[in-house]
Write a protein that binds this DNA or RNA. Structure first.
Lengths: 173, 173, 173, 173
DNA sequence: GATGAATGAGGGTTCATTCAT
DNA sequence: GATGAATGAACCCTCATTCAT
């Protein structure tokens, strides 16, 4: 039963993430439940209200970003290469949705903490890349993060598509 | 009376555009009417439904983009300079909202037509810039448009902020 | 149109008062609307939420109590007679429901004010009756009010039914 | 195991009675179960539905009233004294809740039977008190019961508070 | 037997849209 | 033409009840 419940919880998060990715974050609780093959009541047993569901989804998706960011920056390879790797992996994530969800959950401290952690690590990485001499040094890391965000927050983005190429070219030294 | 009606129509579009810019495209018809100092009935006299209002707003905003794009590309100045001028002017527009509205009105042929016109002119301009030798030639104009879109569709974007600078630097030859 | 709206507002209050009197204060907004021959939306146009409706009903009913209490105490007749008159008129009112509604609207200052006004006038009246020598003097007016409340807050209470008689007899001097 | 079940049953009734007394009869089945340290399922094993639980609680509380009423009327002391004793004991009971529960279970014959039994015994007692000459004889016992009900069904009632005093004074001979 | 997860009808509320004035 | 009242579908959420474990 515990197993079933956990499976359902994950089913809900996954289903909701998919629906949100497809149709925007406006999808109704009813629709999510139906798509998951569950009753609304079950949704509400797992998540006390819509906000909680949004937070859970954000947590899940942002968690994956955090995980591979941590792994990547911990590697012992040139910083520029790490940067590319992260960009590569980012495009696998529904980053635009994540941003929307983060904007919709301003009061969740855990999310704020994760956001900050990811940003801090990225900025640290970018600082190292600037010292390494591979990254344009005249822009503060914080803004480069925003810039990369823009590069990566598009449907169908890829590391080697033109847009990302231009941005990376504009950053490379 | 005809004049009154036209004035009301414009008042509605302007008011709605402002409200949408401030508070997102979720503002209710009632709120729009109230903010315009009118009754909902009047709003519906001018626009048969919400969709029609969205289209009118999109038309209005996209129209301004189209107007100054046409003017800019018609000028007899170096293409790169024209490009910068357009970017400068774009950031004055609620471009993010325009994109949202365009995505929400996929069935309106007039909007499609304007979108296409603006894009075509921009692409033509970019092609000329590439021939002129001031614009990186290895990316198809169509994608450069998308790239500029990204540069410009941020709250508080400016031609000379870091992000736009990097992108323009990445494009300049 | 203003007339229609006012009529509907009153229709809603009346209908709700009736339904509440019949079936308790748990009747749903939908039921009230249906019983009034209106859509739910109309209810909500007149009363922003259920609480507001409850307050309006309480205001209406308590208002009638206040009106005749004021009139009665202003009369130039023996205080005991005034007291009986008030009791007589009270039993016409859905007092039990009023009490419930007052308990359910603790935050409404207007209701608190009316409640206080009515109680103050009654207590003043009772004080005069005690000085007049017709009312048992060893109980504070405040508690006699409560006592009369009890006498009168029953379905089908009458001034001359046994219960009220006993209470009045117990109070008479 | 049978003992466990009986203990659980009683635990539920007691807990529910407490919760209802504190927070009104609107407490949810889930809350009751949780407060009893049980799962809802267990609650439903003992009581097929909410109604059945209400009836069980009413039975329990009314049972205690019946028990001490029977004991009191069987005593060989002056009837007026018995009457006072009963009133004294009544105020220990959640009488207001009992009335609510009785009103909510109109179809339960056992409850009707107990109600009738208690009333009959009280009325008999009151008849004897009238013959004894200590109780006002001009009101039918049935109505005096109702009157005492009113005296006693208040939060914080006591035999010697003003309200009860007035009522008893009004009844004493 | 006990548990608590799942269910879905029902309640409060909002809002695009219609229509009487 | 303008107004704003009326409408009802749709949304979020709760809770009595059922049922798999």
């Amino acid at each position: 039963m515990r197993a079933d419940a956990r499976r359902n919880r994950e089913l809900i998060v996954t289903t909701a993430l998919d629906l949100f990715t497809e149709s925007g974050a406006g999808v109704s609780m009813e629709e999510i439940a139906r798509a998951a093959g569950l009753g609304v009541g079950t949704l509400y047993r797992h998540f006390p209200d819509r906000q909680a569901l949004l937070e859970a989804i954000a947590l899940d998706a942002l968690g994956r970003l955090q995980t591979f960011t941590r792994a990547a920056v911990a590697e012992d390879t040139p910083r520029w290469q790490v940067l590319r790797r992260i960009v590569e992996q980012c495009v696998e994530l529904p980053l635009a949705l994540i941003k929307t969800l983060l904007a919709a959950t301003p009061a969740n401290p855990e999310l704020r903490e994760m956001e900050h952690d990811v940003n801090a690590r990225l900025e640290h990485l970018l600082g190292q890349a600037q010292q390494e001499g591979t990254l344009r040094p005249d822009i503060p890391p914080r803004e480069i993060v925003e810039l990369l965000n823009v590069a990566v927050c598009r449907p169908g983005a890829r590391v080697d598509d033109h847009l990302t190429t231009v941005i990376l070219d504009g950053l490379k030294r």
